[in-house]
């Protein structure tokens, strides 16, 4: 992992990484507190999208475009996981 902070894009990537990590901490607080289970599912969904944002910022910082493939997979898996969780909760009510 070698990069220099010179161009505007690299500065922007560093700023967005900081913002995203603050957002991750806040979302983890909601995941821990969440009074009900649906609250926690919302937080998990948001965490997955935030990690997707971290990957994009990392790609913009180091210019290793191979990692952009991970965003496709993460988007697919997040959706499936959220739907599966919600479905499970709904069936458990019966």
């Amino acid at each position: 992992m070698n990069f220099e902070i010179n161009t505007p894009m690299e500065i922007a990537a560093i700023i967005s990484l900081v913002l995203l990590f603050v957002a991750l901490i806040l979302t983890f607080i909601r995941l821990a507190l969440g009074p009900s289970l649906p609250d926690r599912i919302v937080a998990l969904d948001l965490i997955a999208l935030l990690i997707l944002g971290v990957i994009i910022a990392y790609v913009a910082l180091t210019k290793e475009i191979v990692y952009l493939n991970a965003t496709v997979l993460l988007a697919l898996i997040t959706f499936l996981a959220t739907v599966a969780f919600a479905r499970y909760l709904e069936k458990r009510v019966l």
């Binding site: 894009m9 967005s16 913002l19 957002a23 806040l26 979302t27 909601r30 919302v42 935030l50």
Partner: peptide
């Protein structure tokens, strides 16, 4: 890029 990250921070703030 920075605006996108800002909106994600807004989402996290909203969830809190």
């Amino acid at each position: 890029l920075v605006t996108g990250a800002f909106f994600m921070l807004v989402a996290a703030l909203g969830v809190i």
